[in-house]
Amino acid sequence: MVLAGGRASRLGGVDKVMLPVGGRSLLDRTLEALRGADPVVVVGPRRPEVPGVRWTVEEPAGGGPLAAVDAGLRCLGPGDAVVAILAGDHPHLTRDTLDRLREALRRDPEAGGAVLAEPGGRPQWLLGVWRVRALREAMPAEVRNRPVRAVFDALDPVRVPATTAEVSDVDTQDDLDRARSADR
């Protein structure tokens, strides 16, 4: 599941996930990390230039990341056991990153998820792999404008050390410039 909505107010309101880094949009780079996953759900406005995914949006739109996660969960089937939940603005996320998260979750059957943690230890809640059943059970009745941290932290996820590049995101023009420089 890729969260690809939001206002991108610090970037002037552009469609942030469609910004290019290394010749590919941020969204395409995230989808590449998910190659082989089925289904792939993108929560945000439909982008016709991005085929082969299921699209959904929280109702009403603009309810924040937890509302987006809730909308994405509704697209998963009853047999889906694990879901990666990723913000669409991390240009250096890779398939290897997701493999490490899945392996950490597999090794700890009691954990509700596995999440990347910054070098300082702070979890990046929208860079994780979660047990679908546990996540569904933890979702509050009201998800609009509620923090994801409260729900995800309650699932006692395994914290997987990340490289600085993996957790770098694009929120400002400086972030975008750094991502483009690092990708050369």
Rank of each mutant, 00 (worst) to 15 (best):
A61S: 06
L76T: 08
G79K: 12
R29G: 00
L31P: 01
P78E: 12
D38H: 15
P39W: 12
G44D: 06
L86R: 08
P78D: 11
T30W: 08
P48L: 14
V83I: 04
A67T: 01
T30P: 02
C75D: 12
P91A: 15
R35W: 08
R46P: 00
A37T: 04
E58M: 07
V50R: 09
V83K: 03
V43I: 13
E32S: 10
R46D: 04
G72S: 14
L27D: 01
H90Y: 14
A33K: 00
R54W: 13
V40G: 04
P60C: 14
A33Y: 07
L66C: 01
L26S: 00
G63D: 07
R74P: 00
D89G: 10
V83L: 01
A33F: 00
V57I: 14
P78M: 10
V83S: 01
A68S: 13
G36V: 07
L86P: 01
P51Q: 08
R24A: 12
G36S: 04
A67F: 06
P45E: 15
L66R: 04
H92W: 00
A61V: 06
G62D: 08
L73F: 14
A68L: 05
S25P: 02
V50A: 09
D70H: 15
W55P: 02
R74E: 00
G72H: 12
A81L: 03
R47L: 07
E58L: 09
V82H: 04
A33D: 03
G72A: 13
P48T: 13
D70M: 11
G52Y: 10
L86A: 11
D38C: 14
C75N: 09
V69F: 10
R47F: 03
G64A: 12
D38Q: 14
A71R: 06
G79W: 08
V53A: 13
A71Q: 03
R29F: 09
L26T: 01
A37G: 01
G88S: 10
V82L: 10
H90L: 12
T30S: 11
D70P: 03
R46V: 12
G72R: 13
L34M: 04
H90Q: 08
L66N: 00
R74M: 04
D70T: 13
P60G: 13
V53D: 11
P91W: 12
A33M: 07
D80V: 15
P51H: 11
D70K: 15
G36Q: 00
A84V: 05
V82N: 00
G63C: 06
R29W: 05
R47D: 07
P45W: 13
V50H: 06
V43R: 09
A81F: 01
G23M: 02
P48C: 11
A37N: 08
A71N: 04
V43G: 05
A37S: 12
L66T: 06
E49P: 00
G52N: 06
A71E: 06
W55V: 02
I85Y: 02
E58F: 06
L73H: 12
D28F: 08
L73K: 14
G64D: 08
G88T: 09
R74D: 05
A87I: 05
D80Q: 10
